[in-house]
Amino acid sequence: MRILKLSTTLGVTLFAILAAAKTQAQTVTQDPKFEELLNDKRKISSQITLNDKYKVQIFYGDNEKARKTMQEFKKAFPETDGTIIFESPTYKVLVGSYASRIDAERALEEIHKKYPYALVVQPNK
């Protein structure tokens, strides 16, 4: 009988603590700019797609060097777009977006002058 009384008392106490914790929940107000920034990020992320097109990989290595390589590439080839992709544990700098391998190979000839280790890749294959 004593054990039953103790477990009932313990159960009632636990219920009271949980009910009190639930009623004292805090409300969080979110800055409206946060939602705006989140929407902007969603737009940008949806625009960066890797598709069946061919790209030229000009760098494979760590983050800092990938960023430097991308900056140098944009200065040397301002008309060609590029992106940095993280594939654990390294970063790749991919440039261009070519419909056929032949177009990518033509662009590679010019890119090879500055980046001799560049190669044509098809990211989603």
Rank of each mutant, 00 (worst) to 15 (best):
Q71P: 04
A76N: 12
I84E: 01
K92G: 01
L94W: 04
F77M: 06
S88F: 11
T8D: 07
V12S: 14
F77H: 08
D52Y: 07
K55G: 00
L94N: 03
T83G: 01
S46P: 00
S88G: 08
I58N: 01
Q47T: 13
Q47S: 15
S46G: 10
Q57S: 03
T13F: 15
A16M: 13
T9S: 13
A25H: 08
K53G: 03
V56W: 00
I84M: 05
I44N: 02
L6F: 12
L10G: 09
F73R: 01
E79N: 10
E79D: 15
T27F: 04
A25D: 12
Q26G: 09
I84Y: 01
K65W: 05
R67E: 13
F86M: 05
A76E: 14
E87D: 12
T69P: 00
T23N: 07
S7Q: 10
Q24R: 12
I84G: 00
T83R: 01
S46Q: 15
A66Y: 01
T90S: 06
Q47P: 01
A21N: 11
D62Y: 12
R67I: 13
Y54W: 14
A66P: 03
V93D: 00
K41F: 11
K74M: 09
Y54K: 02
R67L: 12
G82D: 02
T27K: 09
E35A: 14
F73W: 03
I17D: 08
T49W: 04
T49N: 11
F86G: 04
S7K: 09
S88H: 09
R42Y: 06
D31I: 05
K65H: 09
T8G: 08
I58C: 06
E35K: 15
I48P: 00
T8S: 12
F86Q: 07
A76R: 12
I58W: 02
E87T: 15
T13W: 10
S45D: 13
Q57C: 04
E35Q: 10
K53D: 03
Q26H: 12
K33P: 03
N63W: 09
E87L: 13
D62C: 03
N39G: 11
D52H: 11
A19G: 10
T23L: 09
R67W: 06
T90K: 04
L14Y: 09
T23E: 02
K33H: 07
E87G: 06
A21S: 14
I58L: 07
A76P: 05
I17R: 07
N51V: 08
V28T: 14
R67S: 10
F59M: 04
E64W: 05
E79Q: 15
R67M: 11
Q24G: 13
T13P: 05
K92C: 00
L94V: 06
T9C: 10
G82S: 08
